[in-house]
């Protein structure tokens, strides 16, 4: 334990140094350093989200899906019934006007996530910055979260995997979903693989709590709709261009 304490002290030292820095020159740091330092814990100062403009989403284009699966090492194995899909392209057709919409659907990173409420062990959790994740170390694979998710966002791993990517551990018998590219966010990158891959810029990633962020500005201007808003889950992923 001694060594952990040493480690903790060193970490606290760095953290307090960073804090001192903040208090000495708040004006400079707060504006330029948007993301956290690598050894700082995430805080509820941020809430990460996505805004998807369905008008800009091309039918048939799956660039976001491919980029996500490339980024996180998700490969085709036993077919669409059992393979993981962290993000999928959904085609919507209006029942009366037959108007067609296209959009990617992934974990909506709810502020009130049903998956977190139902998880018996607490493996499903929401990080301070609003990202909903699965702690696969304590996931027992009961799939109750999959029953509870209104967006079918989660996948169960149906077979033994190998050669998982270092930043995206995944394994047989546990449940997983879109992580909002949490490894990128922790590195301070202000984007996700899907956002970056979209050829039309239909996706905007950003901090919903920062009124100056691009995503907040776009939301303020045109609004954004939650999927299944009646459930009042306060999703972190919003959609534009869906008329009722």
């Amino acid at each position: 334990m001694k060594y952990i304490d040493q480690y903790r002290r060193r970490f606290l030292g760095t953290a307090s140094a960073a804090f001192t820095g903040l208090s000495i020159a708040p004006g400079i740091l707060l504006q330029t350093v948007h993301a956290k330092a690598v050894d700082e814990a995430v805080t509820s100062q941020y809430r990460w989200g996505l805004l998807i403009d369905t008008n800009l989403c091309d039918p048939g284009c799956t660039d976001c899906v491919e980029a996500c699966h490339q980024e996180n090492g998700i490969r085709e194995i036993h077919g669409p019934e059992t393979d993981a899909q962290w993000i999928r392209k959904v085609t919507l057709k209006h029942k009366k006007t037959e108007h067609i919409l296209n959009m990617p659907v992934m974990c909506q990173h709810c502020a009130e996530p049903p998956c977190v409420d139902v998880c018996p062990t607490g493996a499903s959790f929401k990080r301070a910055d609003g990202i909903v994740l699965v702690d696969k170390h304590i996931c027992i694979g009961c799939r109750y979260c999959m029953m509870a998710c209104p967006y079918k966002a989660r996948s169960f791993i149906h077979e033994k995997l190998s050669d998982q990517l270092p930043h995206a551990p995944r394994g047989k018998g546990t449940v997983e979903a879109c992580t909002l590219c949490v490894h990128r966010i922790d590195r301070g990158e202000n984007t996700t693989a899907c956002t970056q891959a979209c050829p039309n810029g239909a996706m905007t990633f950003g901090d919903l709590k920062d009124p100056q962020s691009q995503i907040s500005k776009k939301l303020a201007e045109h609004g954004g709709r939650e999927l299944r808003a009646k459930l009042k889950l306060d999703t972190g992923v919003r959609y534009q261009g869906i008329s009722s």
Binding site: P80, E81, Q85, R88, K89, V90, T91, L92, K93, H94, K95, K96, L101, V105, M147, P150, Y151, K152, L227, R228, I242, S244
Partner: peptide, 19 residues
Amino acid sequence: QSFPMPLVEGYSATSSFFD
């Protein structure tokens, strides 16, 4: 479980994930 959940009211949905 086998009956689909509605994603957006008033719209029918199709996808690679059986929406």
